[in-house]
Computed example of a mutant assay.
Amino acid sequence: MTTRRDLLKFSALAAAAAALPPLAFAQGGKSVGKAAKPLSILILGGTGFTGPFQVNYALARGHKVTLFNRGKRPSPEWPGEVEQLHGDRNTGDLKSLEGRKWDVCIDNPTSLPFWVRDAGKVLKGNVGHYLFISTISVYADGSKPGITEDAPLAVYKGKDAMAETQENLRADIENLYGPLKALSEAEARKQFGERVTIVRPGYIVGPRDETDRFTYWPHRVAQGGDMLVPGDGSDPVQIIDGRDLGEWMIRLAEAGTTGNFNAVGPEKPLSTKSMLEGCQRVTGGKPKYTHVSAQFLEEKKIELPIWVSDDAGPYAGYGAVSNARAIAAGLTFRPYDTTVKDLMAWFHSLPADRQAKLRAGITREQEAELLKEWRARKGA
């Protein structure tokens, strides 16, 4: 059963993705038109999971893009000119940003409030609009479905939030990630005032997703055979294609939209059952499903990715967060089957040894043992 720790761990520490060939930009394969007004956009990060989608879409729309990061990850081959600035926010090295102006700044990787504070010292008055990628983990209570952007936020209980480091975050991510993101949001408003947009995603999936959290499901369905399915199939699932998230960020910048938004999808409710049915349509797999109770999986200490049980107590609401405000602000979604198809095409382009060992889910051996014990209990 997916826990808060799983949600936080992969949201904060997702591995870098491999470079991809040129990406499809538009919904339904349509061409991307030019923006009415070209913008100069500074992207903090830009080479991880969703950053390249932001860059490619911004270039297609006619914007000028500057990236700021440590230069540790290989950059994809951009379909246009991209300025690259280097520095390290961990050490406060932001010299390459000094004396520069941009219309928009998109802050992708920040989980620590002092990163926002230090960026504000350099960029305040030099950017017209600041967009911050946060997380639905900022909410204090995740137990009830329908969480809106106005729900209370998690409270930091440490000694000094500005002294927290990535090492501290990794060591106590379950208690620190949400509260530190919430304080980072507050610091963004302190530094940049009213021209701030806070975007709170949940599970981000699709091509470039190196966590394999969602990939586990179409990959497993494609294998067929006797398959363990958590719950009765009715539990809600929320995911968003990284391309939909990245492209929407650029449209928010173009429109000058401010405020707080839950960036979760799809547009219509998705259950575990319909999630797996879509995986079957795309992959052609023909597994035999055996539904196993949440209580059994909890007893066996088994965590399955993406799935959040209605019995998950303080986490039950993570599968049914309200996205109404984001949709009203222009968030759109590719068809679910398109996300699955493109994800698997990307996954199958990875080296064979990488495909052989998924980074989330359970092994076939674990699955077989669990099913054997479950059937023994049920007298099947």
Rank of each mutant, 00 (worst) to 15 (best):
L131M: 13
Y203L: 05
G313V: 11
H86M: 09
P152V: 02
D235L: 08
R251E: 14
S75C: 03
R359E: 13
H219W: 15
A328D: 05
A182W: 06
E167Y: 06
Q295M: 13
A24N: 13
K288F: 03
A328E: 15
D342N: 11
E81M: 10
E299T: 13
E149I: 09
G51I: 06
R213N: 13
S271C: 10
G246S: 09
N56Y: 08
Y130M: 00
L169T: 05
T110F: 01
D241N: 14
E267P: 02
L94E: 02
G33T: 15
V55S: 00
S234G: 13
K30Q: 14
E367H: 12
T3E: 10
D311M: 11
I250V: 15
G28P: 03
G71L: 06
S322G: 04
I136F: 06
G242K: 04
Y289Q: 01
E298D: 14
T283E: 02
D172M: 05
F333H: 07
L112N: 00
S322T: 07
T272I: 11
D226Q: 11
D311E: 15
L343N: 06
I41S: 06
F347T: 01
A58N: 09
E367Q: 15
Y203C: 07
G231T: 04
D103W: 10
Y315G: 05
A324G: 08
I306N: 10
K341L: 10
L270P: 03
V104E: 00
E267G: 01
W102Y: 09
D103M: 05
P287N: 09
P266S: 06
Q355S: 08
L276C: 08
G233R: 02
G246W: 00
R364E: 13
I302L: 07
A316E: 04
R170D: 09
Y57S: 06
F53E: 11
G33Q: 12
D209R: 00
L112K: 02
Y203R: 05
V122G: 02
T197Q: 07
G48M: 05
L8A: 15
H348K: 14
Q84A: 14
Q223A: 15
L44P: 03
S293F: 09
T3I: 02
G29V: 02
Q280V: 14
S11V: 12
L67M: 05
T66A: 04
F114S: 00
Y336K: 08
P21V: 12
G330C: 01
K144P: 04
L331P: 07
K288H: 08
L252T: 11
G256K: 02
A368P: 07
L123I: 04
V127L: 03
A253Q: 02
L358C: 03
I240Y: 08
K30G: 15
E365Q: 14
I302W: 07
Y139A: 07
Q366G: 02
A35Y: 11
E149T: 14
V264P: 04
E299I: 00
K341V: 00
V229D: 05
V127A: 00
P305G: 04
F114H: 00
Q366I: 01
Y57P: 13
S134M: 07
T257M: 08
G224P: 04
A312L: 01
A18D: 11
E167D: 14
G29Y: 12
H219Y: 12
